[in-house]
Amino acid sequence: MGKMIKIGMADLSVCLPPDSITTLGLGSCIGCVLYDPVTKVSGMVHVMLPDSTKIRNNENIAKFADTGVQALFDDVIAAGASKSRLIAKIAGGAQMFAFKTDNEMLKVGERNAEGVIKKLNELKVPIKAQDTGGHLGRTIEFNPENGELLIKSVGVPPYTI
């Protein structure tokens, strides 16, 4: 049994077997996993906002979809993942409060998912699985041994994607 690497909000880390990697209680943020199924080099980033270019205070690169996914991509490649084999799994981006509104501030979950997908497309990383949206928070755990992303929400049996 390896250890469980825990990442917080606006945080990222590379993960190699036998370790697993987790982030707890994703709300409107997105957890993005990059994974090379052959070398089993993986990593996870927990981003909070879709676009670093719209924000002045953007030094924390793991906070934004564009810079965070890029940084994770660079890190997993440096750790031995192959660009051509990399796949992605993403989860999160819930709307935690059920507003009937068109207020942009509250649709940030949706924006975050779009931001991450856009960046992954740019990097030509295929999205193997996606579980975004809804109204529930998610705890996610990635096991690089089998490539499964376990998702736990309150009041729902855990499932994998």
Binding site: M9, A10, L24, G25, L26, G27, S28, C29, M48, L49, I55, N57, N60, K63, A94, M96, F97, A98, M105, L106, V108, H135, L136, G137, R138, T139, V154
Partner: peptide, 22 residues
């Protein structure tokens, strides 16, 4: 109202604060 995990609930204000700083 929302009842859920603390981190998920707090992600909403954290994201708003995130635009200003850390």
């Amino acid at each position: 109202l929302s009842i859920d995990m603390a981190a998920a609930i707090l992600s909403v204000p954290a994201i708003e604060f995130g635009k200003l700083g850390d």
